[in-house]
Simulated scan of single mutants.
Amino acid sequence: MKNKKTWGVLVGTGLLILSKLKFLLVILKILKLQTLISMAIYLWMYALIYGWKFAAAFVYLIFIHEMGHTYAARRLKLPVSPAIFIPFVGAAISMKEMPKSAKDEAYLAYMGPVFGLLAFLPAFPLYFYTEDPFWALVIFLGGLLNLFNLIPITPLDGGRIAAGISTKLWAVGLIILIGYSLYTFNILAIIITIIGAIQWYKIYKQQKNLVEDEKEVTSYMTIYRQLKEHAEHASVGNFTYYARSFKGNIINEHLRDVFLILNNVEELEETEEQDRLIIDEFLFRFNEQVQKIKGEFEQTASYYKTDTKTKLKLFMIYLGLVVVLAASTYYGNTIIMESEAMKTIIGE
């Protein structure tokens, strides 16, 4: 059984890598049944190891979880791809457009575990009524699956929720995953740990560079004002010479490319009125690019800024989900451990 599990994880990891290849996604898109096909493959591979009953329960729980993300994305008017099931890894939807803020990202993230919780709640009365330990297994799987997803590190849901509270929580999630990876040597956990560490460093570096980015934006805005003031009084030739003196102070390639417009002043050698039109176009394009750079900076700077009330709300939702899911996992596991039939099904 352990050998089967090991091979299963290896196959799943390989499929995860293959799923990133564009040609596979194109083929699935052409079929327009990517969710159904990948779900069937997922179900079949799990059924080979754990049986159809276990596989059906697991696929159902994952599917409802992903539907929670899809529902949230539609509420936020964010286009997403259909869910793709990756054997021994899970399922995922890809966003074609990023959320506008960490608050929206947190909402998109926690709707997965919320739907996941709703998915296995009916298993409680079903177990009480039938006393069939299978429903305890559904409770255990649903609790564990969604609880693991709440570990506060990206790319897990907990990491995206933590982004709306404090990115410092990612350190906690990283410690949890590192400890779990070392204890179990779980390949999937190791991969998530690596991805999480890279993402954390990327955000840390981005936040650290914000001060320099702000100075750069301020510098570009100052240059634009100086150019505009100079264009009102200087001759065409004098302005062209003056404008080019700023080119060395500019890092952004799009802004540097705007200076090519001034070459037309010398190439055309037409009237001063036509040259003025070229300078006006230069100033317009320059300002357009500066405003774009400014907008991107402001979006990055404000993305992780969430008001205290929202942070508290997100934290309480997160804490509530963790408590309920942890209790459900413990409850389901307790029943399973007392059932010889379930021990056999899950390979104990």
Rank of each mutant, 00 (worst) to 15 (best):
V172S: 02
I175V: 15
I175W: 13
G179H: 14
G179D: 13
G179R: 08
G179K: 13
Y180S: 05
S181A: 05
S181H: 02
N186L: 03
N186E: 03
I187N: 09
L188E: 03
A189N: 03
I192W: 02
I192D: 01
T193Y: 05
I195P: 08
A197R: 07
I198H: 14
W200N: 10
Y201P: 03
Y201A: 04
Y201V: 05
K202C: 00
K202S: 00
Y204K: 06
Q206T: 04
Q206Y: 05
Q206P: 02
K208M: 10
E212G: 13
E214H: 12
V217P: 02
T218D: 10
Y220Q: 00
T222E: 08
I223E: 06
Y224E: 02
Y224I: 04
Y224F: 07
L227P: 01
E232K: 15
S235A: 13
V236E: 02
G237S: 04
G237V: 03
Y241Q: 09
Y242D: 01
A243W: 11
R244K: 10
S245G: 12
S245H: 10
S245D: 15
F246I: 03
N249R: 14
N249G: 12
I250C: 04
H254N: 13
F259W: 00
L262A: 07
N263I: 06
N264L: 05
N264G: 04
E266P: 05
E267Q: 07
E269C: 07
T271R: 11
D275I: 01
D275S: 06
D275K: 13
R276I: 05
R276Y: 10
D280M: 08
D280P: 00
E281F: 01
